[in-house]
């Protein structure tokens, strides 16, 4: 199948994913927005008033980019893991596997779905944030590029999880026991300068720290991490995760007998 046909196949997979997101918008868009609204009310408005300033901004302003990034991470991951695993579990993943599509087309199609859902939820959470605080975007290009790259990393992560998952429990384990703790400890709610030196050093091994701070730099112009370092780390994860997905799909691991 030539390149043009591969692109038609890519468009088909991506379109199918976006249609799915829109078809079940009550499950894909609304719940994360409600959760984030509660974060703004409880942590930002009620508790945040007592905290005062952080990183030179009032706490609500400081926290908002973290919450936007958190919603992008969880939703891009959740979209691909649930969609790909459901396709595998119901068997209709075979529709794609029997077709002459390249593995990278299947990956990119699903990643497009993850990016669309991550950015859609991120956009709605941004609108919600505007009801609570004033948001300025210092470097729009950096902010949007970090968001998209992060959505790609976690979409690919969701796909790896779905490839290995054999039952629905396996789909919930990584978000609950890995993704959640890393996100909460990734500088969403605080600056690492508040941490003791030991824990600040430990945090340097958390990739989400680079994503949250990269995005915060794009929004507010402040970051615990050097922005170039953040880009290098995120891009490295993109390459690593994409390579892993490509290897797994090409070898048929987890999807072929």
């Amino acid at each position: 199948m030539d390149f043009q046909r591969q692109m038609i196949a890519l468009y088909t997979v991506a379109r199918k994913e976006v249609v799915r997101i829109l078809r079940i918008w009550l499950q894909t868009i609304v719940p994360p927005v409600i959760t984030m609204t509660l974060y703004f009310i409880i942590f930002g408005n009620l508790i945040g008033r007592r905290i005062g300033e952080m990183g030179g901004f009032d706490y609500m302003q400081y926290m908002a980019p973290g919450l936007i990034m958190m919603s992008v991470i969880t939703n891009s991951y959740g979209n691909v893991v649930s969609s790909f695993f459901a396709a595998k579990f119901q068997g209709h993943l075979q529709e794609m596997l029997v077709a002459p599509m390249k593995s990278y087309v299947i990956i990119l199609g699903h990643v497009t779905g993850g990016i669309v859902r991550g950015l859609a939820v991120g956009a709605v959470v941004t609108v919600v944030a505007l009801f609570f605080t004033r948001l300025e975007v210092q470097n729009p290009l950096i902010a949007i590029s970090i968001l998209i790259l992060t959505a790609i990393v976690f979409s690919l992560g969701g796909m790896i999880n779905a490839i290995f998952a054999r039952k629905f429990d396996d789909v919930a384990i990584i978000p609950s026991f890995v993704l959640g703790p890393l996100t909460y400890l990734g500088g969403v709610f605080y600056t690492t300068s508040l941490l003791p030196e030991f824990w600040a050093n430990v945090s340097a091994f958390n990739p989400i720290l680079y994503m949250v701070n990269g995005f915060r730099y794009g929004m507010l112009g402040v970051s615990d991490i050097d922005i170039v370092t953040a880009y290098i780390i995120i891009l490295a994860f993109v390459v690593l995760a994409f390579g892993t997905c490509l290897y797994l799909l090409s070898r048929g691991i987890g999807i072929r007998e």
Binding site: M1, D2, Q4, R5, Q6, I8, A9, Y11, T12, V13, R15, K16, V19, R20, R23, A87, Q90, G91, H92, Q94, E95, M96, A99, P100, M101
Partner: peptide, 20 residues
């Protein structure tokens, strides 16, 4: 092994797209 949530038209149309 149909996508149970898709409509009949999309089940077939998508497969055509997968074949380019």
């Amino acid at each position: 092994n149909l996508n149970q949530w898709d409509n009949v038209h999309n089940c077939v149309l998508n497969q055509a797209g997968f074949y380019g």
